[in-house]
């Protein structure tokens, strides 16, 4: 057993752990952030991708003891300011004021541009690969503010998605890049 301290999404977490504990397991089971997923445990599917000291990392391929002291961001840290949308649907006076689509649209200002674009472009189906995709694309777009579609495809070559055929994921990354550059206003509609 060994003591390890990590800062996960801004919260310092210290624990005595089995040396075999993977970083992914530390994040999920010790720190309690289950957004990073275990899809293969051999660094192939990319579902476990998180940010470790600024580097996008497949957390199933790293022991927690190897990164003692690191600062870690998971998908839960992408939109830290987000509050659960409050829907007033119970009073007669307010009920009529809601346009039908108003409340299902997630609020753009709360989400990372990539999350918003994934939602708008239907870039996720079952959603299991999504946290890893978001983290890898975050890293790619921060390094490549003007990405190409081909570049995006290669950036996520280490992330598998079995549902979408990747098309809408690439669409979403390109749209998010525009927003992140400030070229495009945050789209107002889905």
């Amino acid at each position: 057993m060994q003591q390890v301290t990590l800062t996960v999404n801004g919260r310092e977490v210290t624990a005595e752990i089995d040396e075999r504990t993977l970083l992914l397991e530390f994040v999920r089971e010790v720190a309690g952030f289950t957004g990073a997923h275990n899809g293969c445990l051999e660094a192939r599917c990319g579902c476990c991708a998180i940010e470790v000291d600024g580097e996008i990392t497949k957390s199933c391929n790293v022991l927690a003891v190897q990164v003692d002291g690191a600062e870690v961001t998971t998908v839960e840290g992408l939109a830290p300011q987000r509050l659960a949308p409050v829907e007033h649907v119970t009073t007669q006076s307010l009920a009529g004021m809601y346009a039908p689509l108003e409340a299902v649209r997630t609020r753009a200002e709360d989400l990372h541009p990539l999350q918003e674009a994934f939602h708008r472009c239907h870039a996720l189906q079952c959603g299991f690969c999504t946290p890893g995709m978001l983290m890898v694309l975050k890293g790619h777009l921060e390094e490549n503010p003007e990405p190409t579609r081909d570049g995006v495809r290669h950036a996520i070559a280490g992330n598998l998605c079995r549902c979408t055929g990747y098309q809408h994921i690439v669409d979403a990354a390109m749209e998010a890049a525009e927003v992140m550059r400030g070229d495009a206003p945050v789209p107002a509609d889905g």
Binding site: R28, T34, E76, P85, T106
Partner: peptide
Amino acid sequence: TSVPRKEDLALLTGTARFIDD
């Protein structure tokens, strides 16, 4: 119409619970 999905918010933010969670 392509109504944006109701499923997405939890899946995008990591709060969705899969079996291993």
